[in-house]
Computed example of a mutant assay.
Amino acid sequence: MKIQLWSIGKENDPYIRDGIAIFQKRLQHYVDFELKLIPTVKQAASLSVPELKKQEGKMILDMLQPQDYLVALDEYGKMQTTMQLADFIQQRANAATRQVIFLIGGAFGLDTAVLERAQLKLSLSPLTFPHQLVRLIMTEQLYRAYTVINREKYHHQ
């Protein structure tokens, strides 16, 4: 199985990039993992919020393959514990899912069409985090989930 973390937005600040690199390297022991940054829509500042979300949504939907399992990170999504995330990943692996994509939307969230395409909507917290920090948190949580799956000591239960 391959896991990708897609995120709309700018390059990571150095401290975020360094943190992600640590967990990305650790993740490679368990799974083929890739972080994919999707550039913001050109002339985004001149678009209305609904139009911006629609254009971002079209770009994302065009990138997805029919067999991709899409997990949309959304403030209204389901909250899970690390153990539940580990169970979810194990279920996807058991189902022979080829690719799971965790998607972080743009500054105003995800378009309805993308949310409808997602097989799972996941919320990390009722708090609002900067997108770059969410990339780091998700990379660490994926690593943590794999240590749970492999019964390693990183996650304390």
Rank of each mutant, 00 (worst) to 15 (best):
K54H: 13
K42W: 05
Q91R: 14
Q24N: 13
K36T: 14
M59E: 09
L5W: 01
L37K: 09
M79Y: 12
D74C: 08
R17E: 11
P50K: 02
A96T: 13
A95N: 04
Y15R: 14
L115Q: 07
V49H: 02
T40Y: 03
A72I: 13
H131V: 08
S48F: 05
L27Y: 04
Q28K: 15
I89C: 01
F102S: 01
Q157N: 09
M83P: 03
Q90I: 08
M1P: 01
D68P: 08
L27F: 09
Q4F: 13
A72Q: 06
A93R: 13
P14K: 04
E116W: 00
L61F: 02
K121D: 02
K153R: 14
Y154P: 08
Q65I: 10
W6M: 00
E11T: 14
Q99T: 13
H29V: 07
Q4C: 15
Q80S: 14
L70H: 01
F33V: 10
T81V: 10
E51L: 14
E56F: 02
A21P: 04
A93T: 14
L73K: 02
M59S: 10
I149N: 09
L127T: 12
R151H: 15
R117L: 06
T81Q: 07
D111H: 12
A44R: 08
Q157S: 11
L124G: 13
Q43M: 12
V49N: 06
A72C: 11
L124C: 13
P126E: 08
G105M: 02
R135N: 06
P50Q: 01
F129M: 08
F102A: 00
Y143F: 12
L5T: 07
Q91C: 11
P126I: 06
V114D: 00
S46K: 11
D32V: 13
T40N: 11
Q132S: 12
P50H: 00
I137D: 07
T147W: 01
R17M: 10
T97V: 15
Y143N: 03
Y30G: 12
L70A: 03
I60P: 02
L35T: 00
L120C: 04
L115C: 12
V49W: 01
L52E: 07
L52P: 07
Q67C: 06
L64P: 05
R92S: 13
R117W: 03
L35E: 00
L136A: 06
P130S: 07
E152G: 04
P39L: 01
A113K: 09
Y154N: 04
I137W: 03
G105K: 00
T97M: 09
K25L: 05
A113H: 09
F23A: 02
I8L: 01
G19H: 01
E140M: 07
L133G: 04
E152D: 05
F23Y: 15
T112W: 03
Y30F: 15
